[in-house]
């Protein structure tokens, strides 16, 4: 089974809409879906701010938390130590810094968010082949000079979905 990693936006998309007809739905038996603690943390953070009440959800935090936990039964949690993630993430940032003007790109918001890079590192550690995201800026990793330097152990493709309508696949970025 192919390991597939979901970033926070896509994870929340499937949690909130239960779009199980989607080809990359976590209910698809061909894949083994993964998330990490950081994805869970980001999701919980937004829910904990209590703003979901403005989304038309009339529930207590506890109810949503419980639903989230049962939904997580479809996923495997990337079981990595913080120190391993740190090593891989810093390696990634180091390589990107070598090939690109990282600071400038980050300031101009042309680089993937650091949290997304963290998710990507986690997905590589747990040997996922695919990384699903809505962050268009991941295209930058597909350019030849960056790709040549990147040393991913297992992630082969980054699939970028439309952020407004995640049922639409925008681009497949090969990174190996």
């Amino acid at each position: 089974m192919k390991g597939v990693f979901y970033d926070t936006n896509l994870f929340s998309y499937f949690f909130l809409t239960k779009d199980f007809d989607h080809p990359y739905s976590p209910t698809n038996k061909d894949f083994l879906p993964y998330i990490s603690l950081f994805v869970e943390e980001e999701f919980l953070h937004v829910v904990l701010k209590g703003s979901y009440k403005n989304w038309g959800i009339n529930k207590k935090f506890l109810d949503i938390w419980k639903e989230l936990q049962t939904f997580l039964g479809l996923f495997r949690e990337a079981n990595t130590s913080i120190s391993t993630i740190k090593v891989v993430l810093f390696d990634l940032i180091g390589i990107l810094n070598q090939t690109l003007n990282l600071e400038l790109l980050y300031r101009r918001r042309k680089m993937p968010d650091i949290m997304d890079l963290l998710h990507l590192s986690a997905s590589d550690i747990v040997e996922c082949e695919l990384f699903l995201t809505t962050d268009k800026k991941f295209e930058i990793l597909g350019s030849q000079n960056v790709k040549n330097k990147l040393m991913f152990k297992s992630v082969k493709k980054i699939l970028i979905f439309d952020i407004d309508n995640p049922s639409k696949l925008l681009k497949e970025v090969d990174i190996q």
Partner: peptide, 21 residues
Amino acid sequence: ISKNIYGIDAYHKFVSELQVD
């Protein structure tokens, strides 16, 4: 699980809040 559907609007609001955050 499939009973609790919040819809695409809830997703859009989630995304914008995560970005702000």
